[in-house]
Design a protein around this nucleic acid. Sequence first.
DNA 1: GCGATCAGCT
DNA 2: CACAGCTGATCGC
Length: 436
Amino acid sequence: MEGMISVDEWKEGSQLYFLTHLHSDHMKGLSSNWNKGPLVCSPITAKLFPYKFTDFDLSLLRVLEIGPTYSFSLLSPFSQLETEVQVTLIDADHCPGSVMYLFRGDKFKCRLYTGDFRWEATSERALLAKTKLLNALGNDTIDYLYMDNTYCNPLYSFPPREVIAQQVIDIIASHPEHDVIIAVNTLGKEDLLLRISRALNIKIWVRPERLQTMRLLGFGDIFTTNRSLTRVRAVPMYSFGIKTLEELNVLSTLEDYKALLIRPTIGILPSGLPWLMRGSNENDYSCGSDKSNIAAVPGAQVHKCKQVEGSSSFTKIGRYIYSLPYSDHSCFDELQEFIKLVQPLSLKGIVLSEHCNVDPCHYLGHLCKPDQVTEQPRKKLPRKDKPVVGCSKSFKRKKYMKFCKVRRSRVSLLRRLRCGAKITESVTAGCSISDS
DNA sequence: GCGATCAGCT
DNA sequence: CACAGCTGATCGC
């Protein structure tokens, strides 16, 4: 597709550019002074777009609906002759506005670029996406599948988001006297917040920028920037950590801070990432009973805990953080199901990190449709990637230590204050900005 | 002084 | 060695 189209890449020289979703790792290189050509995106992405890039020339956006097939005329870079490309958008269910792109055309063969996606067998949305994808494909075979390989390893196994969301709700409900902070990024995990709000009949505090986003998405009424209206706050990852939670819980015991409404607080870390650190040995950083290895990890205690109901489990990081595998990326089983469904002739990962991600062909190549002419040899794992299968203990420990490391910088504390993790500053900020 | 890029952090 | 993303330092214009 060189010289014709590019997806989530913004180098000079393409005739059409495609954006899968509004996360910064897929927008690296996009800026307000964009002038390289038309940029295709979904309606929701287009709605949020001007708030990410304030001076962007919106006449360059090409907004396509999910479902229908569109046709574009391009110039073949070699023959200089006109050639058509058909494009269909499929819901990727990764974050608001996220889509996959299905390309077809003489010069293109049939290519599916998933972007980041979650493929939950039980979800209404995935079923709908599945129908639309199969409809769009018809009898065509996918020649090239470019797939989200974030969790492309059998080790990465986690339940649907709905299940984890209920576990989060249970944790919050079992701490009725606590404030709760939930780590979220600028876009994504809205469904978790909505479920919490609905189940517990409570508003969710967010930063003003995030409130703006939620309003655009139509969820404005359940979010607030007024601290006094709720005990549940969604805060950015970077203002969330063991140290912050420790501070909040120490301050909540001091008389002086009671006036500032600082209460005992728990943290919820809804992320696939801490799960990665466990590697093949489930017990590396957990302690089933009292035989803990916490001494080896100064400043942090990690307990694997069975929840009251027995069916759900979570990991505790430190005394106050509950970590749960709520992921906006497909787990391994879902990737496997996806490949079985679309049966591509060839498969390529889109997560480019050379170190921690395995060539998806290693685990999933055998599910691709055998093709006599272009069959790819089963790819060997690069040497570097092998430890992923069971990240070495020392490696995981190093990672873990890094995560738990206590920050001492005053500046960063102030930053965290501003971001809602702490109340001291937000008491005034929160009230003055409070939603009208 | 500004944007792009990178290092560092959670 | 990073789901995503902020901040601050540095470099080139």
